[in-house]
Computed example of a mutant assay.
Amino acid sequence: MFRIEAEVDKARHDLLRSRLRDTNTAASPFIAALRRSPTTREVPLHLWALNDSGDLAGGLVGHTWATWLHVTHLWVDDPHRGTGLGSRLLTRAERIAHRDRDCTAARLETWDFQAPGFYRRHDYRVVCAIPDYPPGITEYTMIKPLP
């Protein structure tokens, strides 16, 4: 018999993640090799754009892992949209991932009301569309090979 609990528990979360990682490592020689190599571990990649006053004007948060850049957040404050700042942040992250971390591709998720057109202009293509996630919205997963 099992008891199922619904609660946020960081210690259990970390244990579950560790056990899942061990299971995945045992099943995949590639993942096992990645875990042994210090250059292919998940490494954060954060970029911050500050205005003349030192306030946050935009930023990109992501990480690199397994020869991939994963952009999780890219945001530009309203007064700076359309100035090329988002493009500069994305291009810089791709350059760091490729040149400094040997990444060969990038991925991200965006909603239909956010920036799929922006990413298409930067040569990303949709590989997955999830309609109604959340209801009334389509989420896209997009990828791009890095030169």
Rank of each mutant, 00 (worst) to 15 (best):
D112G: 11
V71R: 00
A129T: 13
R99H: 07
A129C: 11
R41T: 11
L69D: 05
G136A: 09
L146F: 06
N24W: 04
S53F: 02
L16N: 04
A33T: 10
F30L: 15
D123N: 13
W68K: 07
V71S: 01
D9T: 05
R92I: 01
R19V: 12
W68F: 10
P147H: 06
P38S: 13
H63N: 12
L50F: 10
L34T: 10
I143H: 03
L50Y: 09
A66K: 02
A33G: 11
R92D: 03
D112T: 11
A66C: 07
I96E: 01
A6E: 08
P79Y: 04
W68L: 09
S87D: 08
T91C: 03
V61L: 11
E42F: 03
Y140G: 08
A105C: 03
H70N: 11
D22E: 14
T64F: 01
W65E: 10
L45V: 15
T67G: 02
D102G: 06
R35C: 09
L90R: 01
L15Q: 12
V61I: 15
H63M: 04
T72H: 01
T40I: 01
A93W: 01
V8I: 11
L89F: 06
P134L: 07
R99S: 10
A11V: 14
W75I: 14
P131M: 06
R92C: 08
A129K: 09
P79C: 07
D78Q: 14
G82M: 07
E7N: 05
L47V: 13
W65Y: 13
R107M: 14
R99Y: 00
A26Q: 11
V43D: 05
N51G: 10
E109Q: 10
A33F: 00
Y119V: 10
T110Y: 02
C103V: 08
I137R: 14
G84S: 06
L89P: 04
A57D: 04
A26Y: 00
N24M: 09
R125C: 05
H80G: 05
G58F: 02
I4A: 12
P145I: 01
T39N: 09
E5K: 08
H122T: 09
G54W: 00
H98L: 04
H13G: 08
A11Q: 11
T110D: 01
T110V: 08
R3Y: 03
T104I: 13
K10H: 05
F2Y: 11
T25K: 05
R36P: 00
G62Q: 00
H80A: 14
L16Y: 09
T39Q: 10
R101N: 08
V76Y: 01
G62D: 01
H63W: 02
F113S: 10
D102R: 07
L20P: 06
I137E: 14
H73P: 00
H73C: 09
W111L: 14
A11R: 07
A27I: 02
I130P: 01
E7P: 00
A33R: 13
H98Y: 03
I4C: 12
W68S: 10
R107L: 13
L56G: 09
D123Q: 14
R41A: 13
L47C: 13
T64R: 00
D14R: 11
